[in-house]
Design a protein around this nucleic acid. Structure first.
Lengths: 185, 185
DNA sequence: TCCAACATGTAATTAGTTACATGATTAG
DNA sequence: CTAATCATGTAACTAATTACATGTTGGA
């Protein structure tokens, strides 16, 4: 019951449990889609965080039958956990430093052979185009949310976050490719 | 001279040193703009990484006069370091998991009071609009790069990465605000 | 018989942030 | 005389990934 600061991962897990209870394994799978489009974690991190959430009284677990060698626990969000999450979502995020591996490469791309650079950027552009197609398909299957109090609003927003940022990255690749195309300097 | 894997931070530092030599303190300042738009580090991390780059023979240092209580070192990229960086830039980045704190909030935003949600999103939108204006101004002062072998190409690409992704985030905020506006569900 | 999926956990390591520590010079 | 800037480093901690470990059930 020691009320520690809610971490980002903790908020992600509470967000999943606010929709439906589940076991650690279950949550690990549910972290993939659509929440994995903007936040993800390995099971090793998830089990530890669940233990911390329980210690803080934000979730409670009941024993269930397990297939494996160990006992399985089904986690449910508590009313305290729901309150914590509810106030957390409305606090503006602390600005984290950006980390963009491709932009980091672009910063030193003037050193590379222009042909090799073009191949690399096209390769990445393709990867993102595929990813974008996946997001768009998902957006169309889930449809428009009914309103701001619909859990589907969260899913829709997640997919849109993926779409907008991926489109931006593709546009950026195109800008880089245009510079690479027009000149041996 | 033990040739370890080049880290992202190592590549960022080599990218700076490929333009001009500098001390650790100097590099810490140069990490802010424009490279800090997509990669950043504290001085504590930088000094350690410089030691590793030296051990791998990618940079070499000469002692210079320092204002403080300690000896200062001016680092220069070696030809080996330049080769390493040159091949690193043309290798496609390994896809890292996305981490978007605002999208994470959006995923659970259906739980919040719509008024509080709107205030929070508008707050973040404003922050990004300010940031975007800064990027645009920087883009205009540095101008168009002369070609793909110009170091200014890297700076221009960095600023554009900032512009494109920030525009995407603002567009996403507008989508969220539109949903929040049209309905008490 | 072997592989995938179920199911949970620990250990080791790397990346990154925050805080601690020192001491000189220059501008207000 | 006080604060900011110059200048370098270590220590403690949190977040996150990868690898190790165990053992069952059901399908090809």
């Amino acid at each position: 019951m020691t009320s520690a600061q809610l971490t980002d991962l903790g908020a992600a897990l509470l967000g999943l449990l606010a929709r439906a209870p589940g076991t650690g394994y279950d949550l690990t799978r549910r972290m993939h889609r659509p929440i994995g489009y903007f936040w993800s974690a390995q099971h090793s991190q998830i089990y530890g965080e669940l233990a911390r959430l329980e210690a803080a009284g934000r979730i409670c677990g009941e024993d269930v039958e397990a297939a494996g060698p160990r006992q399985s626990r089904r986690w449910t969000i508590t009313s305290s956990g729901r309150r914590t999450l509810r106030s957390w979502v409305a606090t503006p995020p602390t600005t984290r430093p950006e980390r963009d591996q491709l932009a980091l490469r672009a910063y030193s791309l003037w050193l590379a052979d222009p042909e090799a650079a073009r191949t690399m950027i096209e390769n990445v552009r393709d990867r993102w185009a595929t990813q974008l197609a996946e997001y768009v398909q998902e957006r169309d299957t889930i449809g428009e949310p009914h309103g701001p109090s619909d859990p589907a609003f969260g899913n829709a927003a997640a997919v849109r976050a993926g779409i907008f940022t991926t489109q931006a990255r593709i546009a950026w690749c195109d800008w880089v490719l245009a510079v690479l195309a027009n000149g041996g300097d």
